[in-house]
Design a protein around this nucleic acid. Sequence first.
DNA 1: TATACGATCACCT
DNA 2: GGTGATCGTATAC
Length: 206
Amino acid sequence: MRRLPRSFFARPTLDVAPELLGKLLLRRCHGKTVAGRITEVEAYRGEDDRACHASRGRTPRTEMLYARPGTAYVYLIYGMYHCLNVVTEQEGLPAAVLIRSCAPPDDDGVASRKQAARKTSTLHSPRTSMVGPGRLCRALAISRVHNGLDLTNNDDLWIADDGYRVPPRDIATSPRIGIDYAGACAAWPWRFFLSDRVHVSPAPRG
DNA sequence: TATACGATCACCT
DNA sequence: GGTGATCGTATAC
């Protein structure tokens, strides 16, 4: 089990995002460690990306997007949910990957992940589900107190590689969710997810 | 100071 | 299919 180093995040965001699929998101809280295997992410890159919060420039809110790669950017959305991002690229270039969903890591040993989902469905109620950015942060007790945390060097929240590999053909892409206001950027296929969609948020209708 | 709205979710018909 | 919850942020005044 190897914690992802800063060099992993200090690369093009569109390379980092799909490579985060299959990695473990780990959260240590009150002496217990909770983990999720990343199944769905979205890339946000640069001031020219109208869906990126930094598209209106550097403000107190977006400051962390300009920080060192490997920094956590956590913000409050709709007054009640939090979203977790990992900052990418070089310091000064505002870019990050939104972690949208995780699967229970113990699904691994089962041949069919759909079978595993059925098997464990009663253990993962809507309140403990890690599918969806708001639910993920609720399940892992992630909030704005984690904004600015260095994920490469702390023991509360980090990302690790345990050797699990996602075959490239099992990765699907789509436009990002909930950014219809972003003009042409709304069509960019910057959402990456496991194509079985077992632990992935449902695609919007339409 | 006031207002509009959002990288969501749960619950309703 | 639709809508309310709930509040920080950006923008307009």
